[in-house]
Design a protein around this nucleic acid. Structure first.
Lengths: 342, 342
DNA sequence: CTGAAAGCGCTTACAG
DNA sequence: CTGAAAGCGCTTACAG
């Protein structure tokens, strides 16, 4: 009754399941059941335990639960950026899919860095996650090894995998890059430049798609490619369109690997007096909100980022529950938004 | 030697500290020391334990550590939005301040909802966080109660608190709202509208600053205010400037409570043939990247969001370590960026 | 529907 | 510099 803490107690002083059980006049394990499997307990017990919880202000200790049950209820999400609206939309989709569950999301911002990804994964794996959501198909050898050793269910987002067992939700970055390039070719452009930044996996595949389409049309020319490792920003887009025009003065269209770059390119053209699309067609990728509103409005590829997050998390949840996934690859497609800029 | 699991073992099968210790030929607590306080252990032991860790692929179990040490190494961050670039910058500042520590960030997106904030906090408190970072000064009564009961160190971000013990890092939203309004008044505008959306704490304080300045100049007029609860978007900005012009046709300047709204307002004016700033001056708040690049470039308030996150996390870390905070309120200020649109 | 006992994998406080 | 024992707060597997 009197929970007198004797000398040198390591107890936290907070209410515990044991104290709740004592107050409700049941055993700890019945109290546990009342909270976690309420239907397996009599109405009276459920009520008394509920009352004790409220009176004591009991907050379950997740660490203890995780340790005893070997289940963390943690899901790890690794994204390469938070300043990119694409990935915050993915995160919102994930949050909505996880929804009302008692899951805890561990969100890691790798900043397009392998070292950072390794560091974050190393820390997060200590929590014994139930599942992992990754924003890429491949990663550093160390990360691959850590992932394999952990044996935690994994779903890749954004692009589509090819390995048989690899679960992925997204769309073909390659096909999208090719589709946009074909669109420009069909519009009569022949000197189509490609501007790529960051040079992450997705950008490289879009570039591959661009090359494929250019090659098929017999228009391929290495001088039309401008690839830099810096992060995409509006300022960089402005800078790169200038460089593109310098290295290929006859360039009549520019395919930017994302909308930030395209916006910067268009703003720059406006200031420079270059008419878009008359003198230079410009298109982007991702369909950020501003693309529909700018003057000229921006031709781009709309990507199902929210749905990618939602479906990837749903798939992961299913796998965690031991259900068979409906398919290893879920292709959510993309939509070419033909607007004024190209 | 042979770790034969007998019938019905609940062990995870993964390497444990005990197995590492056995392999290194030391006790578990010495192995623990070798990992957590390497200097308190002989070189030979440190090397043997390190080797055993590598050979066994040992990953520490965070739940067990948290339970035994009553220290979670978890820091909770609650932001109202992830699609708002302001808060993702705050998060990056926090991440950088937490830096190399073994901390785990629990990022909660409350979506400007009290109910969501309660739900997330309820889940996160189960992890016994070492500290909490909040993006507001006040919250629902339930959240306030949960926070108080938890007794976890807390730092508020974005605005400045007034309560003596309340730790906060940010700038005065009120002063910033007033400063921008005065700027417009000094430019000769007399019919200055205020467009506010979301109506969160910060927007309301900026509106208070606007009213203060308008009142001081004898220009206050309720018909110049347009406040809606919807989330801020470019589309909403376009819509609201139209409504503002309908309800106050003589309006000669519009102060939008953030840049998204201002961008939408400007895009809309361009399409409608309303000259900015000649016919209508438009200004925003936050200085998003596009504001410097658009035509016209956008007059706005630059806010130290990255630094807010960085300093708030640094302050929290200091408090967690038991250090006395240098000051309860850290004012990081703001900068009015006078550009072309107003 | 309910409970006594053991155990999850670590760290603490003490001792030497 | 190193270790034997106890304990953190839960849940599991079994029994009734």
């Amino acid at each position: 009754m009197s929970k007198t803490s004797t000398i040198k107690s390591r107890a936290s002083g907070k209410a515990t399941l044991a104290s709740v059980a004592a107050r409700a006049g049941v055993s700890a394990m019945t109290a546990s059941r009342a909270l976690n499997q309420p239907k397996r307990v009599s109405d009276a017990v459920r009520a008394r335990v509920g009352l004790a919880v409220a009176e004591l202000g009991y907050v379950p200790n997740r660490a203890a639960r995780a340790l005893a049950s070997a289940q963390s209820n943690v899901i790890v999400v690794l994204v390469p950026s938070l300043s990119n609206a694409v990935f915050t939309a993915v995160l919102e989709g994930i949050e909505d899919a996880i929804g009302s569950g008692n899951y805890q999301l561990l969100i890691g911002n790798t900043r397009y860095s392998d070292a950072e990804e390794e560091k974050l994964l190393g820390i997060y794996l200590q929590s014994n996650p139930d599942g992992i959501l990754l924003s890429s198909l491949s990663q550093s050898a160390r990360v691959t090894r850590m992932l394999a050793a952990s044996n935690v269910p994994l779903v890749s987002m954004m692009d589509l995998g090819s390995a048989p067992g690899q679960l992925s939700v997204g769309f073909s970055q390659f096909d999208a890059g090719r589709a946009m390039t074909r669109y420009l070719i069909d519009k009569g452009h022949t000197r189509i430049g490609f501007i790529g930044a960051q040079l992450d996996e997705r950008t490289l595949r879009r570039a591959d798609g661009y090359r494929k389409a250019m090659g098929e049309a017999g228009l391929l020319d290495a001088r039309l490619e401008l690839m830099v490792g810096e992060p995409s920003t509006i300022a960089l887009g402005a800078q790169l369109v200038e460089r593109m025009l310098a290295q290929a003065p006859d360039c009549d269209a520019v395919f930017c690997c994302n909308d930030d770059l395209a916006h910067g390119a268009i703003y720059h053209c406006q200031r420079r007096g270059i008419k878009v699309p008359e003198q230079l067609a410009v298109c982007g990728f991702n369909d950020l909100p501003a693309s529909a509103w700018m003057t000229p409005s921006v031709t781009t590829i709309a990507t199902p980022r929210y749905r990618i997050g939602f479906e990837a998390a749903s798939l992961l949840l299913a796998v965690i529950k031991g259900e068979a996934p409906p398919a290893a690859q879920i292709d959510l497609g993309f939509t070419l938004m033909a607007r004024e800029s190209a």
